[in-house]
């Protein structure tokens, strides 16, 4: 396979973030579903102090949310300061980015029948825009989720001090305004889950499709961090 070269696309840190996000989203969806519709009952033979089914589900939901929280901050940092690649550069609406975005979409809808016209060795602007959409959804999920969470701190105090609910209010109260009250916030939190699921479906499909049709081993990026690319004949 001398016409192919290995290309490093994801650093270990990026892969950790990727899989942490996957894991956290799956846990959040399952536990979130249980919180919305508690679909199974605790064993009635077990005393309440030992079963804690809802409590564990909520715990899982919050822990996963915190994982998403931390990775979100990390991701935002990397968008601008990563030494490997700075994704924000691909988000800027420059002429080159827009052209590249158009070509990737064209490649996708023409079922890869035409010459690509863009460099498959780097992360393209189409992918980066997609990731940015996901990250925006996740961040909105965090703000709405924390707003719902802070409802429990009615007294304005928490075990770790008054600063914590105070800060949560400071950071998330705008969602009440934006979505018209508590129910609106909840509706957005609920609806965004479907947005994220839809996004994940598209994302997985697209990466598999690329792997199969581009024949550059794209799927390995997220596991080994590397893919192939053909040496440019030109």
């Amino acid at each position: 396979m001398s016409d192919r070269v290995r290309i490093k696309r994801m650093t270990p840190a990026m892969r950790i973030i990727h899989w942490a996000t996957v894991f956290a989203v799956i846990v959040c969806v399952i536990t979130g579903y249980y919180i919305a519709y508690p679909f199974y009952q605790a064993q009635i033979s077990v005393e309440a102090t030992e079963s804690f089914v809802m409590a564990w589900n909520r715990w899982g939901h919050f822990i996963s949310a915190i994982i998403l929280d931390v990775t979100a901050i990390w991701v935002i940092y990397l968008y601008f300061f990563s030494r490997f690649e700075k994704p924000y550069k691909k988000l800027l609406p420059t002429r080159a980015n827009i052209v590249e975005y158009g070509r990737v979409v064209y490649n996708l809808i023409t079922l890869n029948r035409k010459p690509k016209g863009f460099d498959t060795r780097h992360n393209d602007s189409f992918n980066i825009v997609n990731f940015a959409i996901l990250h925006l959804m996740l961040i909105l999920m965090l703000f709405t989720g924390l707003q719902l969470y802070v409802h429990g701190f009615g007294s304005g105090h928490s075990a770790i001090g008054a600063w914590w609910p105070w800060m949560l209010h400071l950071v998330t109260d705008w969602t009440l305004w934006a979505f018209g009250g508590k129910v609106g916030v909840r509706v957005v939190h609920h609806a965004l889950m479907y947005g994220i699921l839809a996004w994940a479906m598209l994302h997985i499909y697209y990466q598999i499709w690329r792997t199969i049709f581009w024949r550059e081993g794209d799927i390995n990026i997220v596991f080994g961090g590397e893919k192939f690319a053909r040496k440019r004949s030109a």
Binding site: G156, P165, W177, G180
Partner: peptide, 13 residues
């Protein structure tokens, strides 16, 4: 409604 909702719910120490 929106304007009223915009008041923060946080408790100032």
């Amino acid at each position: 409604e929106q304007i009223h909702a915009a008041h923060s719910n946080r408790i100032e120490p």
